[in-house]
Nucleic acid binder design. Structure first.
Length: 510
RNA sequence: CGCGGGGUGGAGCAGCCCGGUAGCUCGCGAGGCUCAUAACCUCGAGGUCGGCGGUUCAAAUCCGCCCCCCGCAACCA
């Protein structure tokens, strides 16, 4: 039993949430649920990154206050995550001056004391139309492609975080076997290490208020506002009050607390390079791992408003009558952690029909209906039909190979369907039939537990219909899968099944 | 030579690190069953694993070169 602190990237709420956000939260939630179920003490945090020029600009366009904009949009995220049954314990907002700011400001001061910050003049090409600095890539013939105007050279004072000197140290941190900052899946580590090889540059850590006003002021330097790094990355620490006297800080400070950041591949470099550098210089311990997921395309193409293939999470929920499990199952089943994945309406419909409805739902139903006809009483559950499934499953889950773990659970479903046909269970003499059905019910009890981190409410519903005594407690945060529960026939007080109901209805049904 | 990911039966993917019958879901064809949500089960057709070359008794899997697709390239969150 250990202590697990798990976070997701904080979302930028200048627009409503999209499928990319959902993919990340479902991944993190499945991991968090697994940790709880295996008996760990878990704190799971999500949140929003609410500062920056983009929010400022969007608010201006709408003629409202930045704060009003985020206050309007943030609930969209919270609401969606609740309906997806993301079991977060804490939601952090970077505009929260009580929770977030004290850690940020303390961290800044620590960095300054450690002489990790330096004030310099930054010179770059600034496009008035875009209201931002341009990179070589943005320019066509030296002009801004959007505004067809040459950007002007602008100089401004910035605080910089000194990163150049950290290359060797970072490389060691990211590659050392024990006690390092592990990148999962390991394939993702390569590009980050390659970046270090190319040499690191110092990063801008603040901007003048004239360029960025919507942010946290730099302490003791009026006119400077913190740039995204110190503000946003620090949420992981501020959420538990690192560098303050809040008691939750144990989640971070305790040596035996494991810290996992779940993020997308696009921001891996910041989390792998800038964040540890900040922590090191501030004298705060390092996280344990970075769990990186890929991107979601839609029908094979990048989701984009111009192509018009953007999929709204709300639409997907609506299609399945508000049930988040088809979407949760789809993401976990179809997309190996770390890989890019594709969302298509056709595919999710197929997965729903084939896996959830026909294989899983139908299995539960045929077993329960048969059992009901026999009086619904359970006898001895007979020969173990699970074998090493729990072991394989747990190994996969512990290694964050969620797709493999889910496949292991579905293998039992398919096996049970095959078995029913091979044995012609429905045609057996009464005594034998009863014995076989008890065995099948026991298989389903295990299946329900195996599915619990992935599709929690469906898993609970399966156990309810089976009449398993612990069914009502399964969604509580302190519910733990005990050794007894994993044992074949381990649930001695379970003698009677409940009423069969359709688990997943056909989509075409009214 | 900027960095990284990918190219596997009609579609979408796994396998590749640790070489040795090419696996899964869907689709297609035939059959079985009727307990069940027209669901379930069995069998089958369909792949020169992007191309060329190398290593090896043996390569989708290791090495080299080439072609194609997709992200990122640091102030953009």
């Amino acid at each position: 039993m250990s202590r697990q602190y798990i976070t997701t990237a904080i979302d930028y709420p200048n627009a409503p949430p999209h499928m990319g956000h959902v993919m990340e939260k479902v991944l993190a939630d499945t991991v968090a649920r697994w940790f709880r179920l295996r008996g760990d003490e878990v704190r799971f945090q999500v949140g929003t990154d609410e500062h920056g020029v983009k929010i400022e600009r969007t608010a201006k366009k709408e003629g409202i206050d930045p704060m009003a904009l985020v206050d309007r949009n943030v609930p969209l995220y919270q609401n969606l995550y609740h309906r997806l049954q993301i079991s977060f314990d804490f939601f952090i907002r970077t505009t929260d001056e009580k929770t977030h700011w004290p850690t940020v400001i303390a961290l800044w001061k620590k960095l300054q004391e450690a002489k990790a910050l330096e004030k310099r003049t930054y010179t770059g090409l600034y496009c008035q139309g875009c209201e931002r600095f341009m990179t070589a890539r943005d320019l066509v013939d030296g002009k801004c492609a959007i505004h067809n105007a040459a950007p002007e050279k602008v100089s401004e004072e910035n605080w910089f975080l000194l990163m150049q000197r950290e290359g060797e140290w970072l490389k060691k941190l990211l590659t050392q076997k024990k006690g390092g900052y592990e990148i999962v899946p390991s394939e993702r580590a390569q590009e980050t290490l390659a970046l270090i090889e190319q040499g690191l540059d110092d990063v801008s850590f603040s901007r003048p208020q004239s360029s960025l006003s919507w942010g946290i002021p730099v302490p003791d330097d009026l006119g400077q506002v913190m740039y995204v790094w110190c503000d946003a990355l620090t949420n992981y620490a501020s959420g538990v009050g690192v560098l303050t006297d809040r008691p939750e800080a144990v989640w971070w400070n305790d040596e035996d607390s494991e810290i996992t950041h779940v993020i997308g591949k696009d921001i891996a470099r910041f989390h792998a390079l800038i964040w540890p550098t900040m922590l090191k210089n501030a004298g705060v311990r390092q996280p344990n791992r970075l769990l990186i997921h890929g991107f979601l395309t839609s029908d094979g193409q990048k989701m984009s408003k111009t192509i018009g293939n953007v999929v709204e999470p709300e639409e997907v929920l609506k299609k399945f009558g508000g049930n988040p499990d088809p979407l949760r199952f789809y993401l976990s089943h179809e997309i190996p952690v770390g890989n890019d994945g594709d969302f298509s309406w056709k595919r999710i419909g197929e997965v729903y029909d084939s896996m959830l409805r026909n294989k899983l739902g139908n299995l539960l139903n045929r077993v329960l209906v048969l059992l009901k006809k026999e009086g619904g009483t359970l006898g001895d559950c007979g020969k173990d039909a699970i074998g090493t499934a729990w072991k394989t499953y747990a190994e996969s889950m512990d290694d964050f190979r969620l797709t493999d773990a889910l496949a292991e659970a579905m293998k039992i479903v398919v096996g049970a369907n095959e078995y029913i046909d091979a044995r012609k269970v429905w045609a057996l003499p009464a005594a034998e039939k009863a014995a076989e059905l008890s065995n099948l019910a026991e298989r389903l009890r295990h299946i329900s537990l195996l599915l619990l981190p992935f599709i929690p409410s469906t898993a609970q519903e399966i156990s309810r219909q089976l009449g398993v005594p612990y069914a009502e407690k399964m969604l509580e945060k302190d519910f733990v899968i005990t050794a007894k529960m994993k044992e074949w026939g381990g649930q001695k007080d379970w003698r009677k099944v409940g009423e069969p109901r359709i688990l997943f209805a056909p989509l075409s049904a009214p």
